[in-house]
């Protein structure tokens, strides 16, 4: 019973960390209509940045500055955000799908650096001994998981509140105006490109934060965590929950992660060993088909986008 409780807390921490990534993607796609195929790359930047800054010094590897975790989180947001701003400055002035292709490329490039720059990233073995939040409680898994759940829940709630304020602000309205009709927004004197870069950087900074949160919860990161399957899962979460809706982003994250965990556990329990790899492939096929079907049949997702207009217009 207590084990189940500990697992539930563990599950929710992971699901909410995905929820944070979804909130970031919702700023980019849901509000501004920017298609980011490199989600996993920006999450990886955050995870590695924070890991390098906070791990204890280690022979044979750069970094290990032993800084506090909260500093790692802030640095993760900054580095991911700046990387996104650079990419955005190059591609966002061009055709819309060049951003998709470039972000796809940056995810591959980051994956390569993580795999091959062994003196910085630990190569294929990744980085271990990342300090965990509430690390002192590690020998009591229930308390440890609950404490982490409380922390991640607070971070998620703060982000949710902040983003809700932001999307209802004039800034948020400009983003949606650009998404719906760039020409009209430009004719009102809005620099569409600059707003897009801001939204893209903000969304990626949030993804970087999520990467750091995950790294400091698990205590270990490796390149294979940040492959295109992750990007794909996050997209499925946002589309299923309802893009353009922050509550939808969180709901989708919890739902899809639950579905993913349950099918994974069922496959592991009932499929014989030699067919496990095949069954795992089938799991991805099903989510891919579900995503494509949803785009055709119910593009609004479960919750759909809320209509948000200026509060001054209601008078």
């Amino acid at each position: 019973m207590l084990d189940l409780f500990a697992y539930a807390a563990f599950f929710l921490v992971t699901a909410l960390s995905y929820g944070i990534i979804c909130l970031g993607l919702n700023v980019q796609w849901g509000q501004t209509g920017l298609f980011n195929v490199g989600v996993a790359g920006f999450v990886a930047i955050g995870a590695y940045t924070s890991a390098l800054l906070t791990t204890p010094d280690m022979a044979g590897r750069f970094g290990g500055f032993g800084l506090p975790i909260w500093l790692g989180w802030i640095a993760a947001m900054l580095v991911s955000g700046v990387a996104a701003a650079l990419i955005g400055a190059i591609t966002l002035r061009l055709r819309a799908d060049y951003l998709a292709i470039t972000t796809f490329g940056i995810a591959i490039a980051i994956q390569l650096v993580a795999l091959n720059a062994e003196t910085v990233t630990g190569g294929p073995f990744g980085i271990g001994f990342i300090p965990r939040a509430f690390g002192g409680l590690e020998d009591r898994p229930i308390i440890f998981n609950l404490a982490n759940l409380a922390l991640v829940a607070i971070v998620t709630a703060l982000l949710y509140y902040g983003l809700e304020r932001l999307v209802r602000s004039p800034w948020g309205r400009v983003l949606r105006a650009i998404r719906e009709d760039e020409m009209a927004a430009a004719s009102l004197g809005k620099n569409a490109n600059f707003f897009r870069i801001q939204a893209f950087a903000l969304g990626s900074a949030i993804m970087g934060l999520a990467g750091a949160v995950q790294a400091h919860f698990i205590g270990f990161i490796a390149p294979e965590n940040y492959v295109s399957t992750m990007t794909f899962q996050v997209w499925a979460m946002l589309i299923i929950g309802g893009s353009g809706n922050n509550r939808g982003a969180l709901l989708g994250a919890v739902l899809v992660w639950a579905l993913w965990s349950v099918t994974g556990a069922v496959l592991a329990a009932f499929v014989p060993g030699e067919y496990q790899a095949r069954a795992a492939a089938l799991q991805i096929v099903l989510i891919g088909v579900a995503l494509a079907a949803l785009l055709v049949l119910r593009p609004r997702g479960i919750l759909g986008e809320e209509k948000m207009i200026s509060r001054f217009l209601n008078e």
């Binding site: 799908d97 997209w235 891919g288 995503l291 785009l295 055709v296």
Partner: peptide
């Protein structure tokens, strides 16, 4: 067009 790009991403994963 961007929704089509996304759909192609999902289709690629599934295929």
């Amino acid at each position: 067009a961007i929704v089509m790009v996304m759909a192609s991403f999902g289709a690629s994963m599934a295929l």
